[in-house]
């Protein structure tokens, strides 16, 4: 893959990043998995893949917004956990939803204000909030369990116009994000901030406000993923989200979005998330140990960031 990306010139007239690489990888991986595990292409398994991938797609979309500005949000994982913990609280539906939204907006605002206004490095800020949110999630739901309201389970496990609900969730997340990124001023300004925050400021872009908004959106997308996940596992679990912090970054980076900011695409993120999901599903079908899968996922992450050579050394 390293040589492949070296051969292809970066797209001249675009800031989408080399998302077509992940498309090529996805085709190859699907072919390999389908060939070695015939079960893969059965409708039952495919809808299973879709269901597995959905929370990752939703989280990674929020992560994409943050990474385009040149930031990083490590706190999405614990926020997903916290959301599932809130969902199984014994509260009326409206109160529970409001509480979940309030939690997400609070976390996003604290992250954003710390980073944009108080000059804290995104990694440190979100690492700190990850720790705090994890603590709150553990207090809210010390052991996995609880009852997920029926309407959430229905929205996750049912179908709409014959489509599995998972696809509807993904479609809604993609449409919202596509509108924000490609149609609004906010979206253009995200790329401007990622390209050069000082120049953006000189051109009247409200850099700080937009960064805060971005972290709030990232938290809200993670919250959405939390709702989906709660419906799927039918319980609240303060540790269920942990993997999504890193997985979402892997998916975004796989999709050609530059971790230095300013370059990225939604299609890349969706394809990247699907690739992560297909690899996981394929390994399950091939009876690869769950623990070995952790190792392979880590290696994949290393491979992806190694391909994204940057100018500077360090963070």
């Amino acid at each position: 893959m390293a040589t492949l990306s070296a051969l292809l010139p970066p797209p001249r007239n675009s800031r989408a990043g080399p998302w077509y690489l992940v498309l090529a990888c996805l085709v190859i991986v699907v072919a390999v998995v389908a060939w070695s595990a015939p079960l893969f292409l059965t409708p039952g398994n495919l809808s299973n893949v879709a269901a597995q991938v959905t929370p990752l797609v939703i989280t990674a979309i929020g992560q994409t917004l943050v990474i385009i500005t040149g930031g990083l949000d490590l706190s999405v994982g614990s926020l997903i956990s916290l959301t599932t913990a809130i969902i199984v609280l014994d509260l009326p539906g409206w109160a529970m939803v409001l509480l979940a939204i309030a939690a997400a907006v609070t976390v996003g605002t604290v992250n954003g204000v710390g980073i944009a206004f108080l000059n804290v490095h995104p990694i440190i800020m979100t690492l700190a909030s990850m720790s705090v949110v994890q603590g709150v999630a553990l207090i809210t739901r010390p052991v996995p369990g609880g009852t997920v309201p029926g309407w959430i389970s229905g929205a996750v496990n049912g179908s709409l116009f014959g489509l599995p609900a998972a696809l509807v969730w993904i479609a809604v997340a993609v449409v919202i994000a596509a509108f924000l990124i490609y149609r609004t001023r906010f979206g253009l300004h995200l790329f401007a901030i990622g390209g050069n925050p000082n120049s953006a400021l000189m051109n009247g872009v409200r850099v700080q406000r937009n960064i805060v908004l971005t972290y709030i959106l990232s938290s809200l997308f993670a919250m959405g993923a939390g709702f989906y996940l709660a419906g799927r596992i039918a319980s609240g679990d303060a540790n269920v989200g942990t993997v999504f912090g890193l997985d979402s970054i892997t998916a975004v980076a796989l999709g050609g979005t530059s971790l230095s900011g300013g370059v990225g695409s939604l299609v890349g993120t969706v394809l990247g998330s699907v690739l992560v999901g297909v690899i996981g599903n394929g390994m399950n079908l091939m009876n690869v140990s769950a623990f070995l899968q952790i190792v392979i996922k880590g290696a994949l992450l290393l491979a992806v960031v190694s391909v994204q050579r940057r100018k500077q050394i360090g963070l």
Binding site: N13, R15, R185, L188, F191, A192, G194, G195, N196, S199, A200, M202, N203, G204, V205, G262, V263
Partner: peptide, 20 residues
């Protein structure tokens, strides 16, 4: 210059006062 490398020329010309 205050231009941003990953924007198009047209976007750069109207950055901060985009027609809505």
């Amino acid at each position: 210059f205050t231009l941003i490398p990953n924007l198009t020329v047209a976007e750069s010309i109207f950055l901060g006062r985009e027609p809505m």
